[in-house]
Computed example of a mutant assay.
Amino acid sequence: MIRDATPADAAAIAEIYNEAVLNSTAIWNDVVVDADNRVRWIAAHHDAGVPVLVLEEQGEVTGYATYGAFRSFDGYRETVEHSLYIRADKRGGGRGRMLMEALIAFAREDGRHIMVAAIEAENAASIHLHERLGFVPVGRMPEVGQKFGRWLDLALLQLKLDDRTAP
C-alpha cells in the first residue's frame, strides 16, 4: 500500500535514510538522523503542501518518496527535485517504480511542470529506473560531490509532467 506518511512512520523513514547515508552514495551526507528529526521533516513537507509517500508492506514501511523545490528562486516554482529510497532488504521487485509512479501522479495533480532526478552517476540501477519512467538525461556534473574519500559525479535527468507551452 502506498500512502502519505504520518509521524508514526518517522522511525522507519529514519532507518531507511540512515542506511543510505552510512552505506551508499545515494545520499551525499555524512550525518544520520533520528525519528524526531524525521517527524519535523514530514511536518515541514506537509506544511508546504508536499507529499511524503511511504510504501507499506505487511505493516512495515519499506520505502519512501517525496519532492521539494529544485531551487529556491521564484522562477523554478513549478520544477521539483525528488527523493526515493527503498529499504536495503526490499530493493528490486518494482517497489521503487510503484512509489515513483505515485509521486509523479501527485506532482502532475499538483500542477508541477518538470521533475528533476539528481543521481550519483555510477548508480546504473536508479538511472535505468528513471529512464524507464520517461526521464531523459540532461547533463552530468563531474566531481561536484564527495563521499567515502572519492569524488562523485552527478547525473541529471528530468521528466516533463505536462504539455503546457507557457506557465
Score class of each variant (00 low, 15 high):
V138N: 11
P51T: 01
A102Q: 06
E81K: 01
S83N: 01
A10Y: 04
I114Y: 11
G49T: 12
T6W: 06
R40Q: 13
H82K: 05
G63K: 00
S83C: 07
S126F: 06
G96C: 05
K160E: 12
V39L: 11
N29Q: 15
V31R: 08
Q146P: 00
S72M: 14
L156K: 09
A43M: 15
A117G: 14
A65L: 01
G94W: 04
A105P: 13
R140H: 13
E143A: 15
A10I: 06
M1I: 12
D34C: 08
G49P: 07
R87N: 08
R95M: 13
V31F: 13
H128P: 04
Y64P: 05
V33S: 12
D89I: 03
V144Q: 05
H128S: 15
S24H: 09
I13C: 03
V138M: 10
L99H: 03
I16S: 03
A65Q: 00
G93T: 04
E15I: 10
H130W: 09
W28D: 00
K160T: 15
I86D: 00
A14T: 09
W151Q: 04
L156D: 09
H130L: 09
E19R: 15
A20S: 06
A44G: 11
G92K: 03
A35Y: 00
V138A: 10
L157H: 06
G149T: 11
A105K: 12
R97E: 15
N37K: 09
G59P: 09
V50G: 03
A117C: 13
A102Y: 01
A107E: 04
E60R: 14
P142H: 02
D89R: 03
A121M: 00
S83H: 06
D9E: 06
L152M: 08
L161C: 07
L154I: 01
F70C: 04
Q158R: 08
P167R: 14
P137M: 12
